[in-house]
Write a protein that binds this DNA or RNA. Structure first.
Length: 182
DNA sequence: TAACTAGCTTCTTATATAACAATGCATG
DNA sequence: CATGCATTGTTATATAAGAAGCTAGTTA
């Protein structure tokens, strides 16, 4: 079973925004420094996720821990903009989760050197002096898996949770046939 | 020289290593 | 009181995705 640790989603207000004015109006929740970065950061004190709003009206949500959490934060964001007169009518435009980052545990230790060869050198990158994890890009999945000697796994770039789960199951069965049990 | 493209910036999150800084505690 | 060792803490490394804007490099 995989656990979602981060969800990245994007959407659009479809209205160009005056970020300087928005930052002044919502001083307590917005961080905006155009010299550092063109986006304005929205943070709710009781939520972990971050919303970055751009001049064009497009925005991204990062740090949500489920798809529902991302939707809930988006709803609060639109409501806040509406009640402060920044957005006339929160119109429902496309809002999509772009990336699910998940963790999983194989409950066994891994020999990463053997695994790099077993999974296929063309699909793996393992340079322990640079990074302790083995990077695996499954040829038939749109996501990337980071495998660690402890048996912990990070799956990232997953367009949906089903992809994360099937990729985890695939990795698990490949390891079962490639490596001897502990 | 203008237009275009590519790459980097910021942020989030788990994972695990090394290298480093700073502090705590004990022994001489 | 000073030095040594241990522990804790921070930073770096790498991964994916979105966004806008800047710069560098290439091409017509």
């Amino acid at each position: 079973m995989v656990q979602i640790v981060n969800v990245v989603a994007s959407g659009s207000l479809n209205v160009e925004q005056d970020l300087k004015a928005v930052a002044e109006e919502l001083d307590d929740v917005v961080d905006y420094d155009p010299n550092k970065y063109p986006g304005a950061y929205f943070r709710f004190s009781d939520a972990t996720s971050l919303i970055t709003l751009y001049r064009t009206g497009k925005y991204i949500i990062t740090g949500a821990d489920s798809e529902g959490d991302a939707s809930a934060i988006r709803a609060r964001f639109l409501e806040l903009l509406a009640e402060r007169g920044i957005l006339d009518s929160p119109d429902d435009d496309w809002f999509t989760v772009q990336n699910f980052v998940c963790t999983a545990d194989l409950d066994r230790s891994l020999n990463l050197n053997a695994l790099a060869i077993g999974l296929g050198l063309e699909w793996t990158e393992y340079e322990p002096e640079q990074f302790p994890g083995l990077i695996f890009r499954p040829p038939d999945a749109p996501c990337v898996a980071l495998l660690f000697a402890s048996g912990k796994i990070v799956l990232t770039g997953c367009p949906d949770i089903e992809t994360a789960e099937t990729t985890f199951e695939d990795v698990q069965s490949q390891i079962h046939s490639l490596l001897p049990a502990d």
